[in-house]
């Protein structure tokens, strides 16, 4: 398993390399550049200042030269220097990554705790009122615009009831985490509930379940030992693949709740044309997604002993 994990981590390198080329070319074609935006925007920028800034940031060189300089830095784990804040991108991203991870994992936790049992119960009680209600909830959960849901939650819990703070990080207080995590987690919860239900329905009619029932095993043991375990591989696959969507959604949820994470840094840097920061945020988000999927793959062998690496 260790050798497998190592091999997978090595495979990150070409993936990140190709993504970095795509991102670099895309973002460096950006019209308008930070050199023009850094100064006083009401006046036409002084061409000499612009030239000087371009030199300072190294954007006076041709694009392929710039990419190789960037790549050299990347190989050492250096994401470059922010145009506007003149600080290393590593530091900026480093400050923001923990809030994003906290938010994502809180949302993930909510989804796992609610989504999987909900899907499981729905499938076992197929066709009943519980199933119908749960699945109407699930299809609504994947259809609702998250930022709108977030606004409604804010209105209810902050303005009307006054139970929770409406936005901000609040020095890491749990009360500040609750609403953003629910907002971020709702779509993912719904997805997991749907995926779990589908997987259980698929497994339920397999021969080995009939055998288990025929040999007089209690329904409880059938559900837990046979159905649940065999379902988990299917559910994990969906969970891993869709985690990327969750990371993508952090951008909106963080912006809405003024959460100081990678997502809001990414949006700000796009508006400011601060290309090194934009690149850094995107690469780190993708890396998080790749690592989560690696962990999911490794978990396969934990939930299903037949899978060996």
């Amino acid at each position: 398993m260790r050798a497998y994990a190592f091999r997978r981590i090595l495979q990150f390198i070409p993936t990140i390399l190709i993504i970095s080329i795509i991102m670099f070319v895309l973002l460096n074609l950006l019209p308008g550049n930070a050199a023009l935006m850094a100064g006083d925007q009401r006046k036409a920028p002084d061409p000499r200042v612009v030239e000087q800034l371009k030199k300072e940031w190294g954007i006076d060189k041709p694009i392929h030269t710039r990419y190789f300089i960037y790549l050299k830095g990347l190989a050492r784990g250096d994401l470059g220097t922010s145009f506007l804040r003149r600080e290393p991108v590593n530091k900026l991203v480093g400050n923001r990554i923990w809030p994003t991870l906290r938010l994502s994992f809180a949302a993930l936790l909510i989804s796992l705790v609610i989504g999987i049992p909900l899907g499981f119960i729905s499938a076992l009680k197929r066709g009943t009122l519980i199933d119908t209600t749960a699945m109407i909830g699930a299809v609504s959960g994947v259809s609702i615009p998250q930022f709108w849901l977030g606004l409604m939650l804010m209105y209810l819990f902050s303005v009307i009831l006054g139970w929770l703070p409406s936005s901000g990080y609040g020095h890491g207080k749990i009360s500040h985490l609750i609403m953003p995590a629910i907002t971020l987690g709702i779509g993912y919860t719904a997805l997991l509930a749907r995926a779990t239900r589908a997987a259980v329905l698929e497994v339920m009619h397999k021969d080995y379940i009939r055998t288990a029932r025929a040999k007089g095993l209690s329904e409880f043991l059938i559900n837990w030992r046979h159905i649940m375990r065999n379902t988990m591989v299917l559910v994990l696959t969906t969970a891993g693949l869709q985690f990327g969507a969750l990371i993508g959604q952090t951008v909106i949820v963080e912006k809405l709740f003024a959460w100081p994470g990678l997502g809001s840094l990414l949006v700000d840097s796009i508006f400011q044309r601060d290309i090194p920061v934009t690149q850094g945020c995107i690469l780190v988000m993708i890396l998080v997604f790749l690592i989560v999927n690696l962990v999911v793959d490794l978990l396969y062998s934990v939930v299903d002993p037949r899978i060996e690496y």
Binding site: T15, I19, M23, L26, L27, L241, G244, A245, I247, G248, Q249, V251, L266, V267, I270, T278, I282, M285, I286, F289, L290, N293
Partner: peptide
């Protein structure tokens, strides 16, 4: 598939 499509769309 390894690029969250929301992020890719933002970049574009």
């Amino acid at each position: 598939l390894s690029i969250p499509s929301m992020i890719f769309a933002l970049a574009i």
